[in-house]
Design a protein around this nucleic acid. Structure first.
Length: 484
RNA sequence: GUCCCCAUCGUCUAGUCUGGCCCAGGACACCGCCCUUUCACGGCGGCGACACGAGUUCAAAUCUCGUUGGGGACGCCA
């Protein structure tokens, strides 16, 4: 690694859910690395065995891959670095910058509750900070478990420069001699992060602003250890419409959910990149390359942002319309197969037709899954009629007769196309001396079950002569039954 | 509760650092109109914000202070 090289990382903890906030932080880190010609690393923070499961790691990895956020080198697992922390803590202990604390969790808890009761702000009272050598020996010999705490000054302030927030500072009085090593000898998050970031040569720490409180503590560690301080950039949080933090517990959607619902990776990448950051011009739709080109840490906002699902959906519609029919067909096929609307074989043998169907539906779909929702009738014959549509289109007098006359004409067409079906319908319109709409709407409902959709004549051609006639007959029978 | 951070349309934001070009620009959503066999797409137009109060200044969305509101952190979790 060279001195000038930018090295950033995303450090997710695998909880079985790929948080949009994590994804957005990953995007910012990735964009910055790619923009600066630097390196983007992945570090899995899996030291909490209770919560971290192996298969959960894949959820994060798959999500990152799906978004196209390629990371450099192999991911680093914090759980495999357990041994790296202890020696560093020993060093701190030896230098008198840290000390052993023999206070029991119960005792601490009691004090914490007491403080809360008295409405005081709780801080560790530093009971063990000035234990003599012999006192420490005694306790060690008795086998009392201990944690290691970092010594902090009691007066003055800590501060750091943040690219997003500017200067942030806090009084030492509000800070604790925090624990760096648990009684089981393992590192606590704030300690592990500093050691890891240093060992990985991280130059820029770009993370959510829910970490600013940690940063003051971590800065103390950097100083005690003589490590070079990285550049900090605390990015705003993503909030739900009710302004609270997006979370799995509130059953908010994760990246995986958006993927499954039919959102495109380029949509999510683009949308998330624009939450808390802006290119400073009017661009809303930006490609990967444009995002990299325009990105800068300085342009990141300090204010938290609310996730607007409607805007996300709009953007997705934009991206869908940009895609070729072939690309979309490839994305829609698995959904059709999964819903048993079609089979792989059937789609492959009618690929040209399938692409036409996709083309007909394209500007009406904002989600990939909508092609299956709104175009089911292209693949299956059994569908219900839209309830409102039935009232409006099948309820009028003469509809049954007109539909009958029309399908008879359709039956006589030798080359059943968009043009010939239109010709046949318009001819009948002339003879009946009615409005085109009087035939068009009931026919659409009969053939598709819906009141809206692609141009009727294109729709007829794509559904095919036999199906069209069969469905119109079915509709006539249905209307007859209605009348009874 | 304590500490920290934040504050422009309902939402995402430009403008704030480097006061005047801003009676505030764009986008989503919403509402109209146009296109049209429907639904969409597209085009055009509309609605809609500088949280409040002081101060500094010839001039404040922009600077300062306060108030209010919102968020976050307060674990031998990460």
């Amino acid at each position: 690694m060279t001195d000038s090289e930018v090295r950033v990382r995303i450090a997710p903890s695998p909880t079985g859910y790929f948080h949009v906030g994590t994804a957005r932080t990953a995007i910012f880190n990735w964009l910055y690395a790619r923009k600066m010609g630097g390196r983007f690393f992945l570090r899995i923070e899996d030291t909490d065995r209770d919560r971290s499961k192996r298969e959960y790691v894949d959820i994060v990895l798959d999500g990152l891959r799906w978004l196209g956020l390629d990371w450099d080198d192999e991911p680093i697992f914090q759980s495999q670095r357990f041994d790296s922390y202890k020696p560093v803590a020993q060093e701190l202990l030896a230098e008198g910058k840290a000390y052993r604390c023999f206070c029991s969790p119960e005792e601490l808890n009691r004090k914490r509750q007491q403080a809360q009761k008295e409405k005081r702000n709780y801080r560790y009272d530093r009971t063990c900070r000035d234990l003599t050598e012999t006192q420490i020996r005694e306790r060690l010999d008795t086998g009392i478990p201990f944690v290691v705490r970092l010594k902090l000054p009691s007066t003055g302030t800590v501060g750091f420069d943040d690219v997003v927030l500017g200067k942030a500072q806090k009084a030492y009085e509000d800070l604790d001699d925090f624990i760096i090593l648990k009684s089981d000898g393992n590192a606590v998050y704030n300690f592990a992060v500093v050691v890891d970031d240093h060992d990985m040569g991280i130059t820029h720490v770009i993370r959510g602003n829910d970490h600013v409180a940690n940063t003051y503590l971590q800065k103390e560690l950097y100083q005690a250890l003589g490590f070079k301080l990285p550049v900090f950039a605390h990015v705003p949080l993503i909030l739900r419409p009710d302004r609270s933090k997006v979370s799995k517990r509130k059953s908010d959607k994760g990246v995986t959910d958006y993927q499954q619902e039919g959102y495109l990776p380029e949509t999510l990448l683009n949308f998330l990149a624009l939450l808390g950051w802006s290119p400073k011009d009017d661009r809303e739709k930006m490609s990967r390359a444009e995002l990299i080109e325009a990105f800068s840490l300085e342009a990141i906002n300090a204010a938290n942002a609310i996730f607007d699902p409607e805007k996300l959906t709009w953007l997705n519609g934009e991206y869908i319309r940009d895609k070729s029919n072939h690309e979309l067909a490839k994305l829609v096929a698995p959904i059709l197969i999964e819903r048993q609307f079609s089979t792989k074989y059937a789609l492959e043998t009618r690929w040209q037709w399938f692409m036409q169907v996709i083309g007909a539906l394209k500007e009406r779909c904002k989600l990939v899954s909508e092609f299956a929702d709104k175009g089911a009738y292209f693949f299956i014959d059994e569908f219900d009629y839209d309830v409102k549509g039935v009232k409006k289109r099948f309820g009028k007098p003469g509809v049954r007769e007109n539909l009958t006359l029309l399908y008879e004409r359709f039956d006589n067409i030798t080359d059943f196309t968009e043009a010939t079906t239109e010709e046949a319908l318009r001819e009948l319109v002339d003879e009946l001396d009615c409005k085109p709409a009087e035939l068009i709407h009931p026919t659409r409902l009969a053939v598709s079950g819906l009141t809206g959709g692609p141009s009727l004549f294109l729709l007829l051609e794509l559904v095919g002569q036999q199906q069209v006639i069969a469905r119109m007959k079915r509709a006539v029978a249905y209307i007859e039954k209605m009348g009874e």
